[in-house]
């Protein structure tokens, strides 16, 4: 069986007269049917850009300059724009961080759901209404019939995010890319959304890429984790392996930065410095200037090297044996 999504050596660059910035480099990922992949990184690591690159939503001066995005084995970078439009929303859906930005503030919820439905299907009025109500009902919105005539500002943040999820699920997509959908929400609402997404993806076998800066959320949700740093994947593998025994010093630093429940007071482990700017990357490993294990050998970029059959790391001095690049 082919994977739902396969990225091969993806490179996204922003070309300006002043400079060419490679915002994503050598990005390879595989997501299977029903699998939840957590894509973790800090601001500027390129995790959101990965989502946009997959959906071909990079606008000039940025563009995907190398590599392949394979959906069920078909390279969608080679498709024409009309063909791509046929995929977006139907095969690949996106959920963004701020539903206030994805929902049109001057259109009623029902209208927005109708537009999304009619974009890919021919339906009569009654059927549109039935499907819209069913979609809202499925994501746990109370009194869905009444909500169809509501405007986005009349709903709370959690409800708006539910509407966004309902729209994303309308066409039963094979892949959902969720870009920090719970970051703006309160803890209790975040729990509700996580529970919802988990249930829907498990029931339908939808593949999900969950982009987040929050390792803890990813720990509770994902099957596999990919950690990004300065436009590259530095470590990738099953969630338990990565979180229990990180191989990359950056992953280890990230995990140690999160306060451990029950361990009160004391100092948190911190990673010194900050992520370099993409215009000013060091030669070789981008994490080397902040890394306690860095040596002269880190001045050449290590490849993403398999540690075993399920995980890989991009490091000259990995923290687990047998993974030396």
């Amino acid at each position: 069986m082919t994977a739902v999504l396969e990225l091969r050596g993806l490179q996204t660059s922003f070309v300006t007269p002043a400079a060419t910035i490679h915002a994503l480099r050598d990005l390879s990922l595989t997501v299977q049917r029903g699998e939840i992949l957590g894509l973790v990184g800090e601001s500027g690591s390129g995790k959101s850009l990965t989502g946009f690159s997959i959906n071909r939503l990079i606008s000039p001066p940025g563009r995907v300059t190398e590599g392949e995005v394979r959906l069920h084995g078909q390279n969608i970078l080679a498709l024409s724009e009309p063909e791509m439009r046929g995929l977006r929303g139907r095969k690949i859906a996106m959920i963004s961080q701020d539903p206030m930005m994805t929902l049109n503030p001057v259109l009623r919820i029902g209208t927005q759901i109708r537009d999304a439905l009619l974009a890919h299907e021919k339906l009569d009025k009654a059927e549109v209404r039935r499907r819209a109500i069913a979609a809202l009902d499925e994501v746990g919105i109370p009194a869905p019939e009444d909500r169809l005539s509501a405007y986005p500002h009349q709903l709370s943040g959690g409800m708006r995010q539910r509407v966004a999820i309902a729209i994303a699920l309308l066409h039963q997509p094979d892949l959902i890319i969720a870009d920090e959908p719970t970051t703006a929400l309160d803890v209790t609402i975040q729990g509700q959304i996580l529970a919802l997404v988990q249930r829907l993806c498990r029931d339908r076998g939808t593949a999900l890429i969950w982009i987040s800066h929050d390792l803890a959320v990813v720990a509770g949700l994902a099957d596999r984790v990919a950690v990004m740093y300065a436009g590259r994947i530095v470590e990738e593998g099953p969630v338990d392996d990565i979180l229990d025994a990180p191989a990359h010093p950056y992953t280890q630093g990230l995990i140690a930065s999160v306060p451990v429940p029950g361990q009160r007071g004391g100092r948190l482990q911190q990673i010194p410095g900050r992520m370099p700017l993409l215009t000013d990357l060091p030669p070789g490993c981008a994490f080397a200037p902040r890394c306690p294990r860095a040596t002269e050998a880190c001045a050449t970029m290590p490849a993403l090297t398999p540690v075993n059959s399920t995980r890989a790391v991009r490091c000259v001095h990995p923290l687990i044996k047998g993974a030396e690049a």
Binding site: T188, I189, Q192, L194, A219, V239, L243, V260, P261
Partner: peptide, 18 residues
Amino acid sequence: GVPRLDRRRTVYAPIKGD
């Protein structure tokens, strides 16, 4: 309801409502 690093593949059972 707080996600934690040591809670893997968690089934969240959050409190209802806003």
